[in-house]
């Protein structure tokens, strides 16, 4: 059983939903990033999504764009992200999903990426600009291990396409709550609920909802309807606002704790 499956099973037993925490790996620099991610783990994050910084993140809003720029300014590459992943894997059993645009993986080499990501202890990858139509070129060399390709379902995705995507997905499904880039305002929980109900009919994979989730209230509202909640921009905002603050790590830990407790809702 994969780490991701084990995580969702354990959460189910506890009557909790997954808190999926995204940060750009290496933001603001690799050492501080390690400290921040450790704090997230201490505070109970259930799944880590580590962003591989990219110069042209077209699906991301300003907060994640700037986090990507900070990491790039600190010379963070895919190699660095894999080093961070390997170091974390020595310390924690929390599932780690790498989040990337396709070009850094393409430049690295898709086969090399598959080998090195697994060796570092990553559990899967989400490539935001690689739809099912194009993903064979990345997954063609995959040989059926537990390393999974996390798929996105958008609010615009028609039902037949949902079925096609869910059929090829692994780990969990990442449901985008709203049209727009990451960090957009205006979460619509009832719309998310409708989409989740559609999805539940066609997949047994856990469903995690992200985009536009910024408060503990958002988290608990979504936790009532989904299997997990993804938070990214809110963490990047916190990092950005506390860059000069010596309490940054503590602030992060408290924030994650607050979000995590909002996932403890039983249906």
């Amino acid at each position: 059983m994969s780490r991701i499956e084990r995580t969702f099973n354990a959460l189910k037993e506890k009557g909790e939903k997954a808190l999926v925490g995204f940060v750009t790996a290496g933001d603001p620099n690799p050492e501080m990033s390690m400290e921040l991610i450790r704090a997230m783990c201490r505070a109970g994050v259930d799944i880590l999504e580590l962003g591989i910084p990219f110069s042209d993140p077209t699906a991301d809003g300003p907060l994640i764009q700037r986090s990507s720029s900070r990491a790039l300014a600190a010379n963070v590459s895919l190699d660095t992200v894999l080093e961070i992943t390997a170091r974390l894997r020595n310390e924690t059993d929390v599932p780690i999903i790498l989040f990337s645009y396709y070009n850094p993986i393409h430049a690295f080499g898709t086969e090399k990426f598959y080998g090195k990501a697994q060796a570092a202890g990553a559990d899967g990858v989400l490539v935001v600009d690689l739809p099912p139509e194009e993903s064979d070129e990345m997954t063609g060399c995959w040989n059926g291990g537990t390393f999974c390709l996390i798929r996105l379902i958008a609010p615009t995705t028609p039902q037949p396409r949902m079925k096609m995507i869910a059929g090829e997905a692994g780990g969990f499904l990442y449901m985008v709550s709203k049209t727009g880039v990451t960090g957009s305002a205006g979460l619509d929980v009832s719309q998310a609920q409708v989409n989740i109900e559609h999805l539940k009919k066609i997949t047994s994979l856990p469903i995690c909802v992200g985009f536009g989730v910024s408060t503990a209230a958002d988290v608990s509202a979504l936790a009532a309807v989904a299997d997990g909640v993804v938070i990214g921009s809110a963490f990047e905002k916190l990092i950005e606002e506390n860059l000069e603050d010596s309490d940054l790590v503590t602030v992060m830990e408290e924030k994650v704790r607050e979000f995590k407790s909002a996932t403890r809702v039983s249906r």
């Binding site: 396709y102 739809p131 996105l152 379902i153 958008a154 028609p158 396409r161 995507i165």
Partner: peptide, 20 residues
């Protein structure tokens, strides 16, 4: 049919845009 000119082209975009 998927817009490939030999090994080039295609559609590398976010899922939200795919239906459009």
């Amino acid at each position: 049919a998927d817009g490939h000119f030999g090994p080039f082209g295609g559609r590398y975009i976010a899922e939200t845009l795919m239906p459009a």
